[in-house]
Nucleic acid binder design. Sequence first.
DNA 1: GAGCACTGC
Length: 924
Amino acid sequence: MKMMRHSVYILVQFLFLMVITHVEEERRVKRRTSQDEDDGSESEEERLRDQREREDLERNIRERDAAATRKLMDPKLSRKEEEEAIRRSKAFKEDDINSLRKVSRQEYLKKREQKKLEELRDEIEDEQYLFDGVKLTEAEYHELSYKKEIYELVKKRTEEDENMGEYKMPEAYDQEGVVDQEKRFAVALQRYRDPTAGDKMNPFAEQEAWEEHQIGKATLKFGSKNKKQTADDYQFVFEDQIEFIKASVMDGDKFDNDLPTESPETSKAKSELEKLQEDRKTLPIYPYRDDLLKAVEDFQVLVIVGETGSGKTTQIPQYLHEAGYTKHGKVGCTQPRRVAAMSVAARVSQEMGVKLGHEVGYSIRFEDCTSEKTVLKYMTDGMLLRELLGEPDLASYSVIMVDEAHERTVSTDILFGLVKDIARFRKDIKLLISSATLDAEKFSDFFDSAPIFKIPGRRYPVEIHYTKAPEADYLDAAIVTVLQIHVSQSPGDILVFLTGQEEIETAEEILKHRIKGFGTKIAELIICPIYANLPTELQAKIFEPTPEAARKVVLATNIAETSLTIDGIKYVIDPGFCKMKSYNPRTGMESLLVTPISKASANQRAGRSGRTGPGKCFRLYTAYNYYTELDDNTPPEIQRTNLASVVLSLKSLGIHDLINFDFMDPPPAEALLKALELLFALSALNKLGELTKVGRRMAEFPLDPMLSKMIVASDKYKCSDEVISISAMLSVGNSIFYRPKDKQVHADNARMNFHTGNVGDHIALMKVYNSWRETNYSTQWCYENYIQVRSMKRARDVRDQLEGLLERVEIELTSNLNDLEAIKKAITSGFFPHSARLQKNGSYRTVKHPQTVYIHPSSGLAQVLPRWVVYHELVLTTKEYMRQVTELKPDWLVEIAPHYYQMKDVEDPGSKKMPKGQEDKRVK
DNA sequence: GAGCACTGC
C-alpha cells in the first residue's frame, strides 16, 4: 500500500513537471506569435517558416505527451489514469459539443478567437502566480491547482481504500496481485472490435488513431498563440454541465437488518424447505399476517397497499391457504404480465414444497400449468377474463386477488366491474385488490369504501434531483448527465429512460463517440440498449453482471419501468417523456405520440434506482415542471384504446347496458358507440345490440373482432388455413421485419421478395409464414430474411391456438392456397369497414367516414397504388397512414356487406371516362 | 419514402 501512495506521489510530480515544461514551451510560442502580431506585416515566407517551427514544436509536445500517456497506462496507476483522462477529456469535449449542437464550427472558433484576444489584451504581465517557486500566469496557475486537486482526490481515495482494508484495482480484470494481461486484452478487444472488420486487423488501430488525433488537437492548444485557452476550456466545460438541485428524498421504508442471523453451519443443516420457511418470516409482511387474515375474515373486499418488496404477491395466497380458504375453492391471483405469473407461481411452489402445477399452478395464454389439485392459481388478468366467459360467477374460486391493480390495464379495469358485481351476489367470495399507495383511496371508493390495509415494503431512499432550468434537448442533456455521473459519482449502474428504439440508437451512437473521446484512460462504460423489439439474444446483455470498475448504462424504453428489473441500478436519468398510444374514436385512428409522463410514472422510474441500495434520480426537468405540469396519473388505458374487443367480450358475458357498466373510469361514450357500430356492421350484434350467432363465434377468438370476423368468414371461402396464418401474423403486430439501421437496404430487399406479384401485404405475410413453415421453422432462414424469430414463434403459437379454436366454433380447416381471390374476399369480409379509394393525387379517401389517408411506405403496394384497398389499421404519425394494405374489387364490398355499402358508394364517377390502358397516368 | 412505447387474450 505504501508503494501505491509513493507511486501516486511520483506520478503527480511527473504531471507537474509536464505542465511546467508545457508552460515553458508555450511561452516561447507566445513570444513568437506576439511578435508576429506586433509586426503585422510579415511576409508569406516568414509566416510559413513560423508555421513549420510551430508544427515541429507541437509535434514534440505531442510525442512527449504520448509517451506520458503510455506511462500512464501502467495498470497499477489506473485510478490516476482515470483522473488524468477526465482532465484531458474536458479538452476534447468541445468537439463533441460542437458536432452535437450542430453549431457551425467556424463560427464557434471565430467567437472564441475574439474572446481570447480580448483576454490577452487584458492580461497584465506582472500579475503572475507563484507555484513551487515558478512564476506562472493565471491560466497556468489554475492548471496546476487543478492537478493538485486531483492529487488530493487521489490521495483521499487511496486512504479511503486503505481504510476499507483492501485495495482493488479499478480495471479489475486482474486476479489478486497478478496482472492478467490476457483477460484485459480480451475485454478490450471485445470492446473495440469493429464488427465489419476481420480479425486480422488491429482491433485498436482505429482507437489509437483517434486518440492520437485527439491528443494532437489537445496539445495544439498549448502551442497555439491562444494563450488562455486551457482556462477557457474548463470554463466552457463547466458551462455545459447541467446543474441539478437536490430537491427531495423519496423515503425508503425502514426495516430491520438485524433479523436473527444464523451461523452458516446451522442453516446448512436445515433442509431447503425449512430454510425457505425461515426466509418467509423475514419478509416485511410477516408481522402483519394475523391482522391481515382477520381483516380478510371481517371484510369481503380489502384494498391492500403493499410497496414493492413486501412479499404480498407470494405470501398472501399462502396465508389464505394456511387459514383454510382453499377448502371451499381456489385462490386466484392475477398479474398483468405473463412472466410475473410464471415466476411467482414457481417461487410459491418452492416455498410450499410442492411441484409446480400441482397445488400451486399458473395459467397464461398458450400455457396452462394447473391441475385438479391446484388451489393457488396465478394467472394473467386477461386469462381470468377468459375464464369468466365459461364461469361467470367464478364458482370455483373462494378468493380473487387482483395484484398490481394500479397499472390499470384494460383487463384489470374490466375485472373490477365484474368482480364487484360478483361480490354482490356471492357473499362467500373474498376480494383483495392490491395497489400502490397513491391510488388506494380511489380503489377503496370504487369498492364501496372497502378498508385499506397497508403493508410496508423494503425500499431504499432515493435522492431526487431536478435541473435548475428546463433543458431544451433532453437527449443531449441525458447524455451529458450520463457522462457527468460516470466521471463524478461512485460506482453503480445508470438507467436512462428514453422514448423509443430510434432515440435509443442515436443515444448509443453519441455516447460511444464521446466515450472514445475519453480514450482508454477512463473506467469502462458499457452501453446496453433495451426495448421490446430488440432481439432476445441482444437483450440478455443487460442482465450480465457489470465487471468491477466498469459501469453499465442501460438505455431503456418504458419496458424498464414495470416489465423488467435490472439489478445494480443506482442512478436513474429521467427525461420525463414516453410514447403513449391514443385512440381517436371519431376517425378510428391510433397515434403514438411522445408525451410527458405522469407523476406516478416519474416516481416509479425514480424507484428503480433504490432496489439494491440507496439511489439517485436525475430528472431532466425542473421541480416546478414536476409539480405544475405533470398529471398525477397516466389516463387508464381503457380511455385511450379501441374498444371493439372489450365490447364484444362484455356482450358475450351477458352485459348489455354498456353505458351504465360499472367502470372505475368510464371510457368516452363516443368510443363505446364506435365499437358498437363496428360490431353491428360485422353482424356480431343485431339491431337490438344483442349478440348474434356470428358474434358468439367471434368472441371465442382472442383477437380483434375484425380479425375474428375474417376467420369466421373464411369458412365460406374454404381458406381457413391461410386466413388463420394471416390473422396470427397480423396479431403479433409490426415487429416481424427486423430493420437494423445499418442494413436497411438489405432488409428492405429481403422484405420485397415476399411482395412479388403485388399481392398485397396480407398475402405477403402469409407467404412469410408459409415459407418459414417450409423451412421447418428455421431460425437461420429468419436471419437471412431479416425476420424476427421471436415474432414468428409467437405467430406460430397464436396460429396453433386459433387452429384449436376452429374446432370449437365448427369451422373446418381447409386450405385453398392458390385461390388468392377467395383469401382476399375473406379478408374483405372482416375489414370491409376499412376500405379506401384512390384519389387523383395519389392519396386515398376512406369510403364510409371520408378522410384522406395514405399507404404506409413500408407497404408492398406503396408504389403500386391500386384503385381500391382494404387496410388493417390506420395510424397517425407524420401523415395518416394505412398499414397492411390489400387490393380489392369494389363490387366485393356490395357483395359481402350489402348492409354497409350500396352501389352508389362504390361507383366511381371518374373511372367511366377513363380508358383502361391509361390508368397509370392517373397518378401524376 | 416512413419509423413501431408497453402489455394481454
